[in-house]
Simulated scan of single mutants.
Amino acid sequence: MEEKDVVNLIRKHLDGTATKFEEEKLDSWYNQTNEQGLLWPYQDEAEEEDAKKRIFEAIQSKYKQVNTPVKRLIAPLMYKLAAASILLIGIFYGIAQLWKYQKPSNAGEMVTVVTKRGEHKKILLADGSLIWLSSESHLTFRKLFKAATRDIEFEGEAFFDIAKDKAHPFIVHTGTTTTRVLGTSFNITAYKANRHITLSLLTGKVAFSTAGAQKFVVPGQMIIYDKASWLMTVKKLPDTQLITARRDGLYEYRNVRVEDVVNDVSRNFNAHIQLAGSVKNRLFYGRVKPGETVEQFLQKLAKVVDARLIKVDDGFILTEGGVHD
């Protein structure tokens, strides 16, 4: 449903002129938006209904502010545009700020979000921050941020778009490391099984620290932390678009070891892929095209790195035996 149709239905709902069919249509739009968009940590249907009621009350309040004698002097067309704009702002502002109106008794409640193999989730935090959680990841945070800092516990891979709040720094805890930000966007890869933790920064500034040592990262840079040696290395990002592409489900690899590529594809596309021989150490340059199946991608990978792809009952095997082996 287009935005203008949503606005029209909401106005009818607020005016009390909506038909039963229109009320059902508006309710259906709300539920579909909730399911397809952000992840909301509702405990039960009653809490969700209460949240929805607050959104509409906020919109109604803004609508009434527009509908004053002074505003009626505005030309009809301009009035409609102004009302529509404020209603839309009310919708999205209400959604973004929703958790700030939760009952104080829930302030300390912890929320845990886990993604399975091949699963991805988009999460809205109480402060308006957004997190794109990749496969096999684990995120724990408070339902409401009431302390001096906004702390979360994280493992896996995620893209963070953090709302600015200078008075309350946002801190990501990943095992023995912490990433401290005020308002910025970045990607962290911190799987427990991986030897390295990697942070790639797009906007803002972050402080990455561990074991008493700290390094600052600026936009266009990445930091690689070796968990075995405790070494932190800051490098220039080869291309920031690769980071936002991953956030949007597009995967590109530039001179990446086949073993790392296979692990990444296996995790994000829920595929079982085995490696044999020296293939794992060869370098791959390519990407997963939109709509491409895992098998199609692996056939391309095998051709590029001069390997042989074998399809088995439970997945695939990449082994030596290419044209030049």
Rank of each mutant, 00 (worst) to 15 (best):
E2Q: 15
E3V: 15
V7R: 06
L9A: 08
I10H: 09
I10G: 10
K12G: 13
K12M: 13
G16C: 06
T19R: 02
L26S: 10
W29C: 09
Y30S: 04
Y30K: 00
Q32W: 14
E35T: 04
Y42F: 15
D44I: 05
E47A: 05
E49C: 02
E49T: 04
D50I: 09
A51P: 04
A51H: 01
K62Y: 09
K62W: 13
K62L: 15
N67D: 15
N67H: 14
V70A: 12
K71H: 14
P76C: 12
L77D: 06
M78H: 12
A82Q: 10
A83C: 09
A84V: 09
A84M: 08
S85H: 08
I89P: 00
G90W: 00
I91N: 08
I95M: 11
K103H: 13
K103N: 12
P104N: 11
G108N: 10
M110K: 10
V111T: 04
V111A: 00
G118D: 03
I123R: 08
L124H: 00
L124K: 00
W132R: 06
W132C: 08
L133Q: 04
S137A: 06
T140S: 08
K146Y: 07
A148Y: 01
D151Q: 04
E153R: 03
E153I: 10
E153W: 08
E155A: 11
E157N: 04
F159A: 01
F160N: 11
D161R: 06
D161I: 02
D161F: 05
I162M: 09
D165R: 13
F170T: 07
I171L: 08
I171T: 06
V172I: 13
V172D: 03
H173R: 09
T179F: 01
R180C: 02
T184H: 10
S185L: 07
T189A: 14
T189W: 08
T189Q: 11
A193W: 00
H196R: 15
H196W: 13
I197M: 05
L202Q: 01
T203H: 02
V206D: 00
T210Y: 15
K215A: 03
K215D: 00
F216V: 00
V217F: 10
Q221P: 10
I224V: 08
I224R: 12
D226P: 00
S229D: 10
T233F: 05
K235F: 02
D239W: 03
Q241M: 14
I243C: 02
A245T: 03
R246K: 13
R247W: 11
Y253K: 09
R257C: 11
V262N: 04
V265R: 01
Q274E: 12
S278M: 12
V279F: 07
K280L: 04
G286C: 04
G291M: 01
Q296A: 15
L298N: 05
K300C: 14
L301H: 01
V304H: 03
A307D: 07
A307P: 05
I310C: 05
I310Q: 11
I310S: 08
V312S: 01
I317R: 06
E320T: 12
V323P: 00
H324W: 06
D325F: 02
